[in-house]
Design a protein around this nucleic acid. Structure first.
Length: 757
DNA sequence: TTCAATTAGGGTTCGGTCCA
DNA sequence: TGGACCGAACCCTAATTGAA
């Protein structure tokens, strides 16, 4: 099966699927829908494939022209051929470009060919054995565990089935998905997953079943819109399966076990899962962590959890005894379990990271933690940062995000020459956090082993708990006690700032009566309503080290530091419990109704583009200009037509926070090179004229940067992007301009120019 | 060799759509 | 109505290319 795509010049797309692969099988009755015009119900064309050259010829039912020639049976359509379909009802011309599949569909095609070759026969006997419910269950399991987890499925739901029949039905499901998918790449990916032997039982797909007039099987018709995400998920789970499999094999090989069957023990217990993601550099994990305390250990347990307990089964993963998440709910460090959607996102992100290694996982090679980056920090700097974090935590800004600038400002007060940027700071904070987590984890493991060192031999020198030190060969060391303190205090501050103080202490106000009832304090006239907030706010502002005894408002009682800390700890664990119980959902952001998108004008062909043309919310194309076929007026990637004009809405150079319009123009320069001119609506008398588009915008960005409180040391910007020259639609139009084909350096993206000569 | 220009690609946010 | 998901848009940055 092949997919081809008809695309009009204004971006409408029509997908054609189910192209027959063999001419002899081409049924004369099966037409392919080419387009739909609002006045004319249908215009039908039939397409057939010429051998395997991916060239198509078209047999017209109506008068169809290609490149202004009437189509005959011999006409060969090439990539980007222009098809003209006249419509008697409409006055507008319909132009379509025929875009052939870009990738070689090797394996995909081979699969289909193999099916025909094996001449598979629908196993009616087996087919009737399965109920509709069982098929639905299989679908669910595949979406949770992925294709190929037959043992898991046998164990969970299909004790009375055989692996082979499960596989046969799973194959049928996957094939059905592919039949309905319009996305070629996804379809190919799914087909490549299918494992099938010639003598396996075979169940027909949906489409064929419909022909036999049998009931609709997988109820995919109702899921059409979800098909893309379903197939993406199946592919993702397959990736995880492959990854875990390779890891297990590698681990067992190291243990000298070549064949699983040789070992009667449960091999899972021998695998050291901690090394699962060990080969990936820490820097890959930094962004988008689900929570402040999230570390590599959580990442690898998340992947393992998904494999073991299924995708989206977060509650089970959270409680699972063999994963590290169960510790979160029991420990008193105010750590919240992330929302399901955050975890799903993380899983996807991790698979993306794993995928980059393309199957070459160097499990032996443990990535150094932060390598060069960490070396650039002096020990004194790291120590200062560590102390600051223990004391003050990471501040939270008004927007609810971590405020790294504030942390940096505070750090500068402690270190004279501090030259790191915010990104480096954030990474180092995470490094320190990871190290502390590792230390706590090691400690816990050792405690566990000392109490239960019976059956497994562990080659680790005995040592007393208090003396565990970092073993990374670094002079900056964090002791177990420091790690404990760090973890407790930073988490506490984070919890207070994130959950108790924001939104006018909403969470606190909601439960004030419960606080009064349940939390006792040994101070007469202590009023939780005002005094609790007073001490919590003070701690958040001063940090732990600067905390002094507080004079409680209105009652003039001095509360000693120790008692303050006890009370705050009490409050935090109280609210931690409340939070866990209520599982507060995120509020949706307010929607801005005014921001309505202006869709590109979809009528007419390229020559009839209606200017001005709103390309995106912040860019309007006013004029395309004229191509000058001189090398100075184009590059490999861009065309710079003289007279090109666009209007970009962007931050003002003069007023902070305001946006204004900039007119971008390309003019003919005196020295045979183009001039780039940007005029701000706030200063029309002084346009910025440079000999590169980036030059103009660097000037503007510098001005804007000067207005900011926290200035960047250097601005970087893509001028072609700001001019709109990188926009796909704009490029498409520019490529169609007269003389464009004479720009020798330019590589065309949308138009097949070689054909023009 | 250095610095600026340019490009590709990643991260984040937001709107739209479907569905329970 | 909210959750889940996708994709467009926007912004930023690392890497590459090109010119001085």
């Amino acid at each position: 099966m092949l997919y081809a795509k008809l695309q009009s010049y204004v971006g409408e797309e029509f997908l054609i699927k189910t192209l027959p692969t063999q001419l002899s099988n081409f049924p004369s009755s099966r037409g392919i829908r080419v387009m739909k015009c609002p006045n004319n119900p249908l215009i039908i064309g039939e397409l057939k494939l010429q051998e395997e050259l991916y060239q198509f010829s078209i047999i017209p039912h109506t008068e169809i022209q290609v490149e202004n020639q009437i189509v005959t049976k011999e006409t060969i359509l090439n990539n980007f051929s222009r098809i003209y379909i006249p419509c008697k009802e409409c006055r507008t011309k319909h132009y379509y470009t025929f875009i052939l599949p870009l990738r070689e569909p090797l394996k995909y095609e081979a699969q289909r060919a193999a099916q025909t070759q094996f001449n598979r026969v629908h196993d009616k006997a087996l087919y009737s054995k399965w109920t509709q419910e069982e098929k639905e269950m299989l679908k669910k399991l595949i979406l949770q565990f992925g294709y190929g987890r037959w043992n898991k499925m046998l164990q969970l739901k299909f004790a009375n089935k055989s692996k082979q029949e499960i596989k046969a039905f799973a194959n049928s499901l996957l094939r059905s998905i592919v039949e309905l998918l319009v996305n070629y790449d996804l379809g190919a990916g799914i087909v490549n997953l299918i494992e099938e032997n010639p003598d396996d039982p075979y169940i027909e797909t949906n489409q064929s079943i419909i022909q036999y007039n049998i009931i609709e099987d997988w109820e995919l018709q109702n899921l059409k819109q979800k098909l893309i995400s379903i197939s993406k998920r199946i592919l993702m789970l397959a990736k995880i399966r492959e990854f875990i499999k390779k890891f297990k094999e590698h681990q067992l090989k190291n243990l000298g076990i070549k064949d699983k069957s040789q070992c009667k023990m449960n091999t899972d217990k021998l695998v050291k899962w901690d090394y699962l993601l060990g080969f990936i550099p820490s820097s890959s994990f930094y962004s988008q962590r689900p929570s402040i305390w999230w570390t590599r250990k959580h990442d690898s347990d998340l992947i393992r959890g998904v494999y073991q307990y299924g995708y989206t089964n977060h509650l089970i993963i959270k409680e699972a005894t063999d994963l590290c998440f169960k510790d979160l709910s029991t420990s008193q460090n105010y750590q919240e379990f992330p929302f399901p959607e955050t975890l799903n996102k993380r899983v996807k992100k991790l698979v993306q990271i794993i995928q980059k290694f393309d199957g070459f996982y160097d499990f032996d090679n443990l990535a150094q933690s932060d390598d060069e980056e960490e070396k650039s920090w002096s020990i004194a700097e790291k120590q200062a940062l560590f102390n600051l974090l223990c004391d003050y935590g990471v501040p939270i800004g008004v927007d609810g995000r971590q405020n790294w600038q504030e942390l940096k400002d505070k750090l500068i007060l402690k270190i004279n020459k501090f030259d790191k940027n915010l990104n480096q700071l954030e990474k180092m904070v995470q490094t320190i956090r990871t190290r502390c987590e590792q230390m706590l984890m090691k400690h816990k493991e050792r405690e566990f082993l000392e109490s239960d060192s019976s059956d497994l031999e562990i080659e680790q020198p005995p040592s007393s708990i208090g003396e565990i030190r970092e073993e990374q060969g670094d002079e900056f060391q964090i002791s177990y006690q420091d790690s404990q303190k760090f973890s407790k205090q930073t988490n506490m501050l984070h919890f207070i700032r994130k959950n108790i103080l924001p939104q006018n202490q909403a969470l606190y106000q909601q439960h004030i009566q419960q606080v009064e009832k349940e939390l006792f304090i040994d101070i007469p006239e202590y009023d939780p309503k005002s005094h609790d907030i007073q001490i919590i706010t003070t701690l958040s502002q001063t940090g732990f080290n600067g905390l002094q005894p507080i004079t409680l408002s209105n009652i003039n009682t001095i509360m000693p530091t120790e008692q303050i800390l006890n009370r705050i700890e009490q409050l935090c664990s109280f609210f931690k419990k409340i939070r866990d119980q209520t599982n507060i959902k995120r509020k949706p952001e307010l929607k801005d109704d005014q921001q309505k998108k202006i869709k590109p004008n979809s009528a007419g062909g390229v020559n009839e583009i209606q200017l001005p043309y709103q390309v995106s919310t912040s860019l309007k194309l006013v004029s395309l200009g004229k191509i000058i076929p001189s090398p100075a007026y184009h590059s490999e990637h861009n065309l710079f037509p003289v007279g090109y004009k666009s209007i970009r809405t962007h931050a003002s150079m003069f007023t902070k926070g305001k946006r204004c319009q900039y007119t971008c123009e390309i003019q003919e320069g005196s020295d045979g090179k183009p001039l780039f001119k940007v005029t701000s609506e706030e200063d029309v008398d002084n346009p910025i004229i440079k000999n590169s588009c980036t030059g103009c915008w660097v000037h503007i960005y510098n001005k804007i940067n000067e207005l900011q409180e926290h200035k960047k040391s250097k601005v970087t910007i893509s001028g072609t992007d700001r001019f709109g020259l990188l926009e796909a639609n704009v490029q498409r139009y520019l490529e169609e301009l007269p003389n464009a084909e004479m720009c020798s350096k330019y590589k065309f993206k949308y138009r097949n120019v070689a054909q023009d000569f």
